[in-house]
Design a binder for these strands. Sequence first.
DNA 1: TGCCCGATTAACT
DNA 2: GTTAATCGGGCAA
Length: 179
Amino acid sequence: MLEVAPDLIGATLMFDGVGGRIVELEAYHHTEPAAHSFRGPTPRNAVMFGPPGFAYVYRSYGIHWCLNFVCEPEGSAAAVLIRALEPTVGLPVMRRRRGVADVRLLCSGPGRLCEALRITAAHNGLALDQPPFALFARTGAVEVVRGPRIGITKAVDKPWRYGEKGSRFLSKPFSDPSS
DNA sequence: TGCCCGATTAACT
DNA sequence: GTTAATCGGGCAA
């Protein structure tokens, strides 16, 4: 899972005709208390305990939706939270859905990203390589930076947040002094 | 059955 | 910098 996470930076995620490059994500694993899967399978997180390559969507703070990719090995309940995209396709559609003009605010956050792509609980458990999802590996080299995860209160020390170095589309900048 | 809290965001002081 | 919005899951009673 920790090997897969940085490889997804720079990959392109498409959903129902719109999407962009993944520039930020966080890894979660059932052995650490910050993960939803920490306390074992439940109706909500059942997807995480299934095979890899599927989407786990959950409601955050009763308001937003957040998208995860289930990672291998199967049964480890590992997942990566997609935190930010660099929008590349369907800009007008995303702008209309989000109600903002600034491209950098379209997908720079897990809740924003789902609103822009219109991802909801209806898409929980769908395969990432089947419509309406589509996932393309990155083509060129990408500089990946790592840091502590955001917005959680447990296991804050684990540096399992990954992002593209210097990207303008991160939900928050990395505190990497060399960037 | 009830209570507390969160892998968030946007608006407001 | 602070706080409201808003709801389902997880845990205590």
